[in-house]
Computed example of a mutant assay.
Amino acid sequence: MKLLVPVKRVVDYNVKVRVRPDGTGVETANVKMSMNPFDEIAVEEAVRLKEKGVATEVVAVSIGPSQAQEQIRTALAMGADRGILVEAEGVVEPIAVAKILKAIVAKEGPQLVIMGKQAIDDDMNATGQMLAALLGWGQGTFANKVEIADGAANVTREVDGGVETVRLVLPAVVTTDLRLNEPRYASLPNIMKARKKPIETVKPADLGVDTTPRLKVIKVEEPPKRQAGVKVGSAAELVSKLRTEAKVI
């Protein structure tokens, strides 16, 4: 079984995000970039399935600038076998990402696509669902447990009222949630080995996909600073302030 794992290059989650002075977007110059944390969980799950003998090959794919090779190398150091970089500059929206992944699926023929449920930069939470729709495959979103057996995937997923388990006939798409696993740290020997693993580079046009954005960002600005709270002397005063100042009741 071959597994395909998309990984995205994002601003590291430990970095305080700053808006550009002209309000056109988020500042990324001289900022530490990392693999999207949800995608790290997806890579870890794919590698674990390979270690269990369920999968035979793990292919990591990233869509973005040439620097996204760094995130692919991270996936290779964690245990992926090879990588594919779809080199694209600027914003690539979820529908374009899904179309690119569909083309790669057609080329590679994986039985399972495991990906993060969302990216921490745009919080779209849309690509996995779009990909499943384009492929006509079953999908298990927000997975916190994945079991593969008898040509199917049993995915335990988090829902508002608790958890539910769905059975997906392979091939299928699974998106990962935080509680699925804890990603490993790549060892130094594996980091060195990852440098020798192959990364294929292609362009969106090679896959027949137009990545021209359909959305236009008008302005990006910092959220308003939180104001200090106010102490009240009684419940009656609280109700009065909620009614006359906050105007919420």
Rank of each mutant, 00 (worst) to 15 (best):
L3G: 01
V10L: 07
V11K: 05
N14R: 14
V19L: 02
V19D: 03
P21T: 10
T28D: 04
A29D: 14
K32R: 15
S34N: 10
M35S: 04
M35P: 02
M35C: 10
P37M: 02
I41S: 10
E44C: 04
E44L: 05
R48W: 00
E51S: 13
E51I: 07
K52Q: 15
A55H: 05
V58P: 03
A60M: 09
A60L: 09
P65T: 10
P65K: 03
A96C: 04
L101G: 00
I104F: 04
A106K: 15
L112C: 07
L112S: 03
L112M: 11
V113C: 11
Q118A: 09
I120F: 12
D122Y: 09
N125A: 15
A126I: 05
W137N: 11
V146M: 07
A149W: 01
A153Y: 11
V155D: 09
D160I: 01
G161P: 00
E164A: 12
T165F: 09
V169D: 14
V173F: 05
T175C: 04
E182K: 13
R184P: 02
Y185A: 08
A186W: 12
A186F: 12
N190R: 11
V202G: 08
A205L: 02
D206T: 10
P213S: 11
K216E: 15
E221K: 14
P223S: 12
P223K: 15
K225S: 13
K225G: 14
G233T: 12
A235E: 13
A246G: 02
I249E: 06
